[in-house]
Structures are given as structure tokens and as C-alpha cells.
Amino acid sequence: MKARAFSYVRPATVAEALLAFAEAGEGASYIAGGQSLVPALALRLQAPERLIDIAHVAELRGVSCDGEWLRIGALTRHADAHDDPLIARYAPLLALAAPHVAHPAIRNRGTLGGSVALADPASEFPAMMLALDAEMEIAGSAGTRRVPATAFFQDLYQTAIEPGELLVALHVPVARAEHRCAFDEFARRRGDYALVGCGVMLAMPGDVVAEARIAFLSVGSTPMRARAAEAALAGQALDAEAIRRAQAALADDLDPPDDEQVPAAMRLHLARVLLGRLLGRMEMAS
């Protein structure tokens, strides 16, 4: 299992990185943490002619907050999602999800930007971008643009990022006092890709759910928002009846893939159980 030969460049700025890609054309690939890319190269499933190492581009680093939005640089590591005080305060859902991402050594190296740009439907962070209503900042030859999460994830491993473009940062609306969040997943072993995972954000200024955002991983070709379940909760008190209706509504939201190991009915069932447990925990806590 040795990768095919490639050349390697290490740009210092976003502009240099974009240029390096443009020079190489479709045969180039960006690498940051590389925790998903390197296995694909070792397995020769991918064989770029040039690797553009963006790990030293300063513009892609750092976490900051302007009071409305939390900006998470694309190079922020999974481990930082758990440890960073700004993330813990303004996007606690990410801190809850982080320990479920693979194993410690992967979290020390993998980046949030890399995970979101890869858009693996079984990964935690892409789904959490949906639950957080985040926006992705993308740099290209024509400048930068921000794409909302709902428009960002398009199909299996397909996002709004065009070839050669670079994910610069994740922008997350800051969590307020009225927000409650929860995350959990069912994985066969600690750190495995989950059979199903779910992040929930509730805005609860009082006893009633003003807004619910529910996102699932491992239930389809992209991370999925559960709009019908959200609607079942909106305007309701978070009680057993509302939770039951949200669980039932998942049949309209999710159409999981069917395979012998994990039949579609199994995933839907587990999604319901998981949502019920998460909302139940939030009910107990509120």
C-alpha cells in the first residue's frame, strides 16, 4: 500500500495555493491534515500528480468571534473543536461532537475544514454545519464567497466548492443563552463511523421550542436536515408527545440507503431512537 508518485508544494498564502492548483490543473489536490486523503492515496483510490500542502497558510488558521459569528479557520484541528474556549462557548455543539470523531491521534491531525470539504455523509462535522446553520467561506480565482450549509452539501462527496477552490473558514452563528444543543451517535466501536448520528440545536427562549435544527449523519448520500421533525417541535413545549411526533416525522425526512449489514429500516429505527433519547435528555435538562 504505497501511494503513486506525486510532486509536493507548500504555499504560504491562499493566493499561492490557488495559483499552484491552477498551474497543475485537475491533477492537483490540496492536503491539510490528510487524515482521509492519505489513506485514499495509499490505497491508490486517488492519485493526484501534485499535492498542495495548505497546512502552513496563515489565513486558514485561528478561531475568532465578532459577537454575531464565530469564524473557525479551516485548519482548526478536530482536537481544537473540543479544547478551544471560543468554540466551547459559541458553538458548543462542535465540542460535543468532537470526541466522537475517530480516535485521538486522528483528531490531533485532522482539520475541520478538511472534514467539511470532503463532506463524508458519515462524518460528524459536516452534519453539524447543517445543525448550526453555518456558512462556508470559499476562496477562488474570482475572490471569496460564503455558502450556507444547506446549499453547500450537494451530493455524495460533492459540495459547492468548485475544482481549484479552497475552503477558507467556517462561519457559525453564535449560540445564545436560549440555545440548547445535544449530540450523540450509535457506533459499533468507539471512533468508528456511526450507524447513525445526530446533532440537535434548539432555541428555547422559554418553555416552548422557538426553532429546532436537527441534522443527521450516516443516513444518506449527504448529511441531512430533518425538517419535518424540526417542524413537529417548533412552537411546542418539549414534552413526551412532541418528542414522539418528531420521531414519527423522521419517516418523511430520511430515506436511508439499504444494505444487508444495515438495512434502511434499521437506520431509520436507530435515527428515531437516537432523536428520542437526545430530546429526552434535553427535556430533562430544561
Partner: peptide, 13 residues
């Protein structure tokens, strides 16, 4: 200072 997989990083990185 932090554990990483030696197989998931190229030496040039």
C-alpha cells in the same frame, strides 16, 4: 508534542 499516525502524514509534510 501530540500523537499522530506516521502512516497518515508524508515525510515532506
Amino acid at each position: 508534542g501530540a500523537p499522530v499516525h506516521g502512516c497518515l502524514i508524508f515525510a515532506v509534510q
